[in-house]
Amino acid sequence: MKARPTETIALRVVAAVIDLLVGLYLSAVVMRVLIPRLIFDTAPAPFATMDMLILAGSALAVLVHGLLSGASPGRFAMRLDVSKGYALTAATHLGWMLLVTTVIAGWIVTGMDPVALFSEGGLAGARRIFTALLTPEWDILGDALLAMVETIYLAFMATAIAVPFSFLLSFYSARNLMSDTIGRRVMYIVLRFLTNFSRSIEPLIWAIVFSVWVGIGPFAGMLALVVHTIASLTKQYAEQIEDVDHGPIEAITATGASRTQVIWFSVVPQCVIPFLSFTIYRWDINVRMATVIGLVGGGGIGNMLIQYQGLAQWNEVGAIVIIIAIVVWIMDVISARVREALK
């Protein structure tokens, strides 16, 4: 077992805050979800002053109880000492309560309904849609293939446009190249933040943003993919750059070459193959993403799918789904093969 951290004030404060949140969370879940939905079977009533008092009260209760007896899930989480006996039991019970209430609340909130999954009507519906999917309507094959090609091109263009940006940015977001002056370090941090931030926004959301900006259609979808691809590739490229062998960098630097030359002649040759491999994989991923983006009006096969789904023409939907599956599978195989060959 690892040694316990020493009890600094900071650790104790964090533990106390955790206790506060535990109390708050427990009472909130019980009050707003469990009691109204399980016992009264109604939507929760609007917030009243009384509710706020109860919330604050229970949060304080857990906190004070923890401070007085040492029975604190917060101390437990921060790996501080929880004295044996009553304190440990109480802290463990609080932990179990957290788990149980969360599972029950989760069940309620996600509207779990096993009855619907296996009811007569439900199963009939499933049979209907699966038969339709399995008897695809191939009349739309031509249109669907065209739309699929549009999606593949969309993914290709998004990748192609993103690559030069990512290539340039990656050198400025690689820690090993950006740690020699304060200015470079700041730039590294800013770039890392920007790419991480834009990567954490799903392309689907970017697509919605751009469809407002440039209008619904493939262009909006492509822009969404471009943003996401720049962020993802920059990160991947940069990590590759951080992994390069330092020896050649030193050797080229020692010849008196300029910084640009050093990067071009010692870093880039070590990176081209992995970069290519990442790029092909990213195109492959983008084909899948472009399909999903089509669902919100980004054009291509996804758009076609959502239209037939809206008309409840399940046989056509079946054909489209099969085409998507086959193309994605082929792309997957090809990109894996190419990447293998590049090694």
Binding site: G247, I252, A254, T255, G256, A257, S258, Q270, V272
Partner: peptide, 30 residues
Amino acid sequence: HRAQIGMIFQHFNLIRRHSVLANVLYGALS
């Protein structure tokens, strides 16, 4: 200053993927 001093390393530090001639030419980058 660096350009007038050649440097040789234990692990050679050549650009592995490039030709021998290219590697020698890189001595003239400065």
